[in-house]
Amino acid sequence: MNFAGLAALLAAFLAGIATSAIAAEQPPTLVEIENPLASTHPLQGYLRRSNSTGPLPAVVLLHGCNGNWGHIDERWGRRIASWGYVTLSVDSFGPRGLNNCGEGVRDDLTRDAYRALDFLVRDPFVDPARVAVIGFAHGGRVALMSVERGLLEQTSPSKFHAAVAFYPPCLGFNGIMTAPTLILAGERDDWNLARECRNLVDGRDDWGISRQKGEGFPMKLIVYPGAYHGFDAPALETPRQMSGHHLEFNQAATDQAAAALREFLDATIGPQERPQ
Results as ranks from 00 to 15, higher is better:
residue 24 A to M: 05
residue 26 Q to T: 13
residue 26 Q to A: 13
residue 27 P to T: 09
residue 32 E to L: 08
residue 34 E to T: 00
residue 35 N to A: 14
residue 36 P to F: 04
residue 40 T to K: 14
residue 40 T to S: 14
residue 42 P to I: 00
residue 42 P to L: 00
residue 43 L to F: 04
residue 46 Y to Q: 13
residue 46 Y to H: 14
residue 46 Y to W: 14
residue 47 L to G: 00
residue 48 R to G: 02
residue 49 R to D: 02
residue 49 R to E: 12
residue 50 S to T: 15
residue 50 S to V: 07
residue 54 G to F: 01
residue 55 P to F: 01
residue 58 A to F: 02
residue 59 V to I: 15
residue 61 L to T: 07
residue 62 L to D: 03
residue 62 L to E: 06
residue 62 L to K: 08
residue 63 H to C: 06
residue 64 G to Y: 05
residue 66 N to S: 15
residue 66 N to V: 11
residue 68 N to G: 14
residue 70 G to I: 12
residue 71 H to D: 14
residue 71 H to N: 15
residue 71 H to M: 13
residue 72 I to T: 12
residue 78 R to Y: 08
residue 80 I to N: 03
residue 80 I to A: 01
residue 82 S to R: 10
residue 82 S to L: 08
residue 82 S to M: 06
residue 84 G to N: 09
residue 87 T to W: 03
residue 89 S to K: 03
residue 91 D to L: 00
residue 92 S to Y: 08
residue 92 S to K: 07
residue 93 F to R: 10
residue 94 G to T: 13
residue 95 P to F: 02
residue 95 P to C: 05
residue 96 R to G: 12
residue 97 G to Y: 08
residue 98 L to A: 12
residue 99 N to Y: 11
residue 100 N to V: 01
residue 102 G to D: 08
residue 103 E to A: 13
residue 104 G to Y: 06
residue 107 D to S: 15
residue 108 D to F: 14
residue 109 L to W: 06
residue 110 T to G: 06
residue 111 R to P: 00
residue 111 R to W: 11
residue 112 D to R: 09
residue 113 A to H: 04
residue 113 A to P: 06
residue 115 R to G: 00
residue 115 R to H: 01
residue 118 D to T: 11
residue 119 F to L: 09
residue 120 L to W: 01
residue 120 L to Q: 02
residue 121 V to C: 05
residue 121 V to D: 04
residue 124 P to N: 06
residue 126 V to N: 03
residue 127 D to R: 00
residue 128 P to F: 09
